[in-house]
Amino acid sequence: MKYGAVLKAARERHGLSQEELAHHLHIQQADVSRIENNRREPSMSLFRDWTVLTQAQDVMVAFICGMDGLTILQNIMSVVIGFIGGWMI
């Protein structure tokens, strides 16, 4: 399963750089990059910690339930666009 794009979207939605996320997760920035580029698969505990830190538990639930990555990304983007639209009004 390809986690990279979804975890990257969760990180960006939460406003964290790769360096900031790595610091909070006690891993290297290069590891964050490898995971986001699907060159390394995160352990279940790292995946859990990443989603909790970025407040993206919905992502973890969607993966467990078998939702595909594209649908998850579309849902994340609709939330971001809705937030920005509401903020600008």
Rank of each mutant, 00 (worst) to 15 (best):
M1Q: 01
K2W: 03
A5R: 06
A5K: 07
A5D: 09
A5P: 01
V6L: 03
L7H: 08
K8F: 07
K8R: 13
K8D: 04
A9F: 02
R11K: 07
E12I: 12
E12D: 09
E12R: 15
R13N: 03
H14M: 13
G15L: 10
G15Y: 07
G15F: 02
L16E: 00
S17L: 08
S17K: 07
S17T: 15
E20Y: 04
E20F: 03
E20S: 07
E20Q: 11
L21M: 13
L21C: 08
L21K: 10
A22P: 04
A22H: 07
H23D: 11
H24A: 09
H24W: 10
H24L: 14
L25K: 01
L25Y: 06
I27T: 03
I27N: 01
Q28P: 01
Q28G: 10
Q28F: 11
Q28N: 12
Q29T: 14
A30N: 02
A30L: 06
D31N: 12
V32R: 06
V32K: 02
S33E: 06
S33A: 15
S33C: 08
S33K: 01
S33Q: 05
R34K: 15
R34N: 13
R34I: 03
I35Q: 00
I35P: 01
I35W: 01
E36T: 03
E36A: 05
N38S: 04
R39L: 15
R39Q: 15
R39S: 13
R39T: 08
R39A: 12
R40E: 09
R40C: 07
E41R: 12
E41S: 13
E41C: 03
E41V: 15
P42N: 10
S43L: 07
S43Q: 05
S43C: 03
S45G: 06
S45Y: 11
S45L: 13
S45R: 14
S45E: 12
F47R: 01
R48W: 14
R48N: 13
D49G: 11
D49K: 15
W50L: 00
T51Q: 04
T51S: 10
V52W: 02
L53A: 07
L53Y: 11
L53K: 11
Q55A: 15
Q55H: 15
Q55N: 15
A56H: 09
A56K: 05
Q57R: 10
V59T: 04
V59K: 01
M60D: 00
M60R: 08
V61E: 07
F63A: 02
F63E: 00
I64C: 09
C65Q: 14
C65P: 00
C65N: 14
G66S: 06
M67V: 15
M67L: 13
G69W: 02
G69F: 02
G69N: 06
L70H: 04
T71W: 00
I72S: 03
Q74C: 08
N75D: 02
N75E: 05
I76Y: 03
I76M: 02
M77Y: 10
S78R: 11
S78T: 14
V79G: 02
V80T: 09
V80Q: 14
I81P: 05
I81D: 12
I81C: 08
I81L: 14
G82E: 02
G82Q: 10
G82L: 09
G82I: 00
F83A: 12
G85R: 12
G85Q: 12
G85D: 12
G86H: 09
W87M: 13
W87N: 12
W87G: 12
M88P: 00
I89M: 14
